[in-house]
Amino acid sequence: MTAFAARPWIWSWIAMAAVWGATVLFTGGASAAGVTHAALTFAAFSVMVGIGQMFVITLGPGNVDLSIPATMTLAGTLSLKAIDAWGGGTLVGLGVSLLVGLGVGIANFTLIRALRIPPIIATLSTSFIFQSTAIWANRGIRIKPPDALAGFSTDMTLGVPNVAWIALVLTVAAWVLLERTIFGRRVLAIGQNMRAARLAGVPVDGVRFATYILCALLASLAGFLLASFSGGAALNMGAEYLLTSIAVVVIGGSSVAGGNSNVPGIWGASLFMFLLVTMLNTYGLGAGVRLILTGLIIIAVIVAAGGRTRTR
């Protein structure tokens, strides 16, 4: 059991493998390649927002970014609009989406700091404003991404979807950032005890500021890629990522109370969440039953992985 205790992410990988097996066996193995490809593609978007949310949640109780869906929508809308208006292709889109992320991160943390309100409420308030800006910019017109960009986001390299490669690179970077840099150690220290961290000389505000910007940057990148992947930005494109981003962090074995996080679990949980829906679809169940089973299985996984003591 010590191996399990040291690797809280292992449960999400076990659950993911079980669901993958159940899906592939049901179709007699015929769907293995297709299911895996789809899972890698869609999990990639959850992984990107999940990493950002993980860093934020690591900061401690009350730290959650609820503006991720609105940020994705805003970045997706504005970046494709910019490409359409100015030309310049992928780089312009990427630049605009990252600028959106930077702006969102600054706005979020300024509000948290200036009004001294819980981040949940601050990011909820700003998300309304971002969503409105996206509605205003969108005007109901769906701008298609340029062919090169659409092609890149749907293509594969070496049998793995390009978006999954991007997510993989970001995952490795996030792992290094969390486990091997001073920044990561400081984020963990703040999550374990903000007061102690401050007394120990950690620049608490600076680290929190950087963390919210990091989260917003990842969300806007995910929004840009998702809009390119799905042939244009839609106003509700981020909606499902609100709960998904939180779920993948916690199912992945990171502590929801902060201060204790891990990166590999996010991949396991993201693949699990997608495969779960695929499995229930494969079994041909109705929407209602599918939702109920999704909920019960999420609870079952967290009960199986639970038993870790709450620190607060």
């Binding site: 709960l243 599918r290 009960v303 038993g307 870790r308």
Partner: peptide, 20 residues
């Protein structure tokens, strides 16, 4: 089980939604 309420209630939200 000392579970995080956020995740359990997240799971329950799917259950209630499905029943509805």
């Amino acid at each position: 089980r000392e579970l995080p309420s956020i995740v359990v209630s997240l799971g329950m939200s799917f259950v209630w939604g499905g029943l509805a």
